[in-house]
Computed example of a mutant assay.
Amino acid sequence: RVADAKVSILFEGESGVGKDHLARALHSISKRKNCQFIPVNCSAIPETLFESELYGYKKGSFTGAFRDYEGIARSANGGTLFLDEISELSLPSQAKLLRFLETKQVQPIGEAKIYDVDLRIISASNVSLIKRVEDKKFREDLYYRIAGITIKIPPLRERVEDIIPIAESLLTEISKTENKETAYLTPSAKEKIISYPWFGNIRELKNKLYEAFLNSKGGKIDTIDTSAKEKEETEKIQLSFFEAKRQFEQDYIEDLLIKTKGNINEISRISGLSRKAIYEILKKFNIDPSDYR
């Protein structure tokens, strides 16, 4: 019933819990499945380009407009527009999105014609949007437009009963990608998977399964190698105070980069550090945040 409902859906949950997979799954079983599913990473679109990306533009309408571009809204016409990391939109960009959602019309930059658009909106956020509304960082009117139904997805470590079915589904997907016979998990591998906390959620699980798949023989997976992480924890105890402090600083910033997909504003909000301080840490460890986007 949710798949074909006209109401907008908002998924909330930690990075890596599978919000994008659920959005695609909803689209694939809806009446819109034969039309486009257009995913948009809101954190990757600069505020100055949001309107042109959403509405499109005519060739020559501004510097750099070397061709006609129909925009993401018209590209998703008849289908689903998936707005990932919607919490990262600036307030001006939120206003432009709200106007589109209210009118369901777009007018490309440099063009007189107005186009009607019929699409389904599914949004996702790794932070509480209602908290962002309370902090005056997200428009309340936009929130109620996109959160017709809010589905909170718990982290993988809190869904122990789901871990093995998800792992087996991922293995089927990996096997198809590699064009090989479907791999399977032995009881010992399943035990290892269930006992590991998976702080990186489904994304981390898939990476570990892919590694195990490539190292397996005959599709049989006996274990999942998490030893690097466990060895890392043991080695930390042998470091001096200053070495441990430096290691913590690097691990902390890298974990935040993974969690926020390289979003400096969000890292600043979570850590309490200024953007300047964050960039100094990145420079010290020669880390490029774009590698995490």
Rank of each mutant, 00 (worst) to 15 (best):
K276P: 09
L171V: 13
L209A: 02
E232M: 12
G200E: 06
D255W: 12
W198Y: 09
S169E: 10
A277L: 08
G262E: 04
D222R: 00
F213V: 02
L282C: 07
E249T: 13
E191S: 13
G272M: 02
R203E: 05
K206M: 14
K176E: 12
E158G: 07
K229L: 06
I221E: 03
A244C: 15
K190T: 11
R159A: 11
K276D: 12
S216L: 06
I193P: 00
A167L: 06
S271F: 09
Y279A: 00
N286R: 04
Y210A: 01
E243P: 06
I267L: 07
I194D: 04
S216D: 12
E235Q: 13
Q238L: 14
T226L: 04
R159Q: 14
F248R: 10
D225P: 08
I194S: 01
W198K: 00
A244F: 15
K206A: 05
G219F: 12
W198P: 00
K259P: 01
L282D: 10
Y210R: 01
I287K: 00
F213C: 01
L170T: 04
K220N: 07
D255F: 11
E249N: 13
I194M: 05
F242P: 01
L185N: 03
K206R: 15
N286Y: 06
E249V: 06
G262K: 06
G218E: 15
L170V: 10
K283E: 15
A183C: 11
D162T: 09
D162V: 10
R269C: 05
L209H: 02
G200P: 01
N215Q: 12
V160D: 10
T177V: 11
S227A: 11
A167C: 07
E243K: 15
K208Y: 14
I166T: 05
E191N: 12
G218T: 15
G262S: 08
E243M: 13
K176M: 09
D222I: 03
I278K: 01
K206Y: 14
K229D: 04
E280M: 07
Q250I: 09
Y279C: 00
E161W: 12
K276R: 08
E211S: 07
I194W: 06
